[in-house]
Amino acid sequence: MSFFNKVLASIGIGGAKVDTKLEKPEYTAGDIMKGQVEVCGGSVEQQIDSIYLTVYTTFIRESDDKKYTDYASIKKHKLNEPFKIGANETKVIPFSMELPLDTPITYGNTRVWVATGLDIKNAADPEDKDYIEIRPDKMTAAVLKEVEQLGFRLRQVECEQAPKRIGSRFPFVQEFEFVPTSGPFRGKLDELEVMFLSQTKEKAELLIQVDRKAKGIGGFLAEAFEMDETFVRLTVTSQDVPKLNEKLKQIIAKYV
């Protein structure tokens, strides 16, 4: 084991590499994600302190009236205890990890990926990145479906920087933006935004933004100063699902 090879490995040349192979590329939020991590030794023996999987997503952050695409960690999972990998040796480590129920849905510009990293002392840490598609869980799907049943069309989905006052556990919140195209709210609302603040399998806390359509000079002034927007917090449980359409209709109608 030459000194020169050790130096090269310390800066990532000829060092260990990592490759994560997922069982499938698409998951529902809350699923168990399975796969295996393949670690391939480089030109010298190296100490692997840990292997970690981190689920990331993108979100829009505003600063000085400009928008930037940033990223945030949703979950980090450590796979192993320290071990050594010899030169040209290969180790395969199976894993399973539960995706959070509030993992963002990959719709529009939202991206979700799994980053695999090797923590190697005194060396560059190799990484691997695997993009995955995320579909909504049953509760989220039920809410979005019932909003559409009220005559709304989903126009845009985006993860945006979350104001501290709304209490999101992430630095972002995913917004589902709807516009009324038919039904009781057509011509009365400009748009409706639905945000999921926290979720379990049996319950979801929502924040709904109702944006009323401007009427007359007073309405236009209210719209100019964003006084036409109302925020409503509500909790939806699995028991609410059969009557969810009527519940949402009544809540939205209060602010039209």
Rank of each mutant, 00 (worst) to 15 (best):
M139T: 10
M139L: 15
R111I: 13
D125V: 06
A87H: 02
V112T: 05
W113N: 02
R111Q: 11
I93F: 06
D102M: 05
A115P: 08
I134T: 01
P104N: 09
I93M: 05
K138V: 12
K91C: 01
R111G: 14
D137Y: 05
L150P: 13
W113V: 03
M139A: 15
I120R: 04
P100Q: 08
G151H: 10
I85C: 01
V92K: 09
E89Q: 00
I85E: 06
K121Q: 12
M97T: 07
E148C: 07
E127A: 07
E98N: 00
P136F: 14
L144E: 13
K91Y: 01
P100Y: 05
V112N: 04
D119M: 13
K121V: 13
G108M: 12
P136K: 10
T110H: 10
D137I: 03
M97D: 04
P100L: 06
L99C: 04
P100A: 12
A141F: 07
V92R: 10
L101Q: 13
D102Y: 01
N88C: 02
D119R: 07
Q149E: 13
T140P: 08
V112D: 04
K145T: 09
K121A: 15
P100H: 08
P104E: 09
A87Q: 01
R135M: 12
P126H: 03
L118N: 03
L144T: 10
E148M: 10
V143H: 09
Q149S: 08
R111W: 06
N109Q: 15
D102L: 13
M139F: 14
V92N: 10
A123Y: 03
N122H: 12
I120Q: 07
G151E: 07
M97P: 04
D137F: 10
M97N: 01
A124Q: 14
E148H: 15
G108T: 11
V112L: 05
R111A: 12
S96Y: 03
I105G: 02
I120H: 02
A123W: 01
M97K: 02
D125A: 13
A115E: 15
R111T: 14
D128R: 00
T103K: 03
P104W: 09
E133T: 12
L150N: 02
P94C: 03
A142N: 11
I105D: 08
K121L: 12
N88D: 01
L99T: 03
G117M: 12
Y131V: 00
T106K: 01
N88Y: 10
E89D: 05
T140F: 07
D128I: 00
E127F: 04
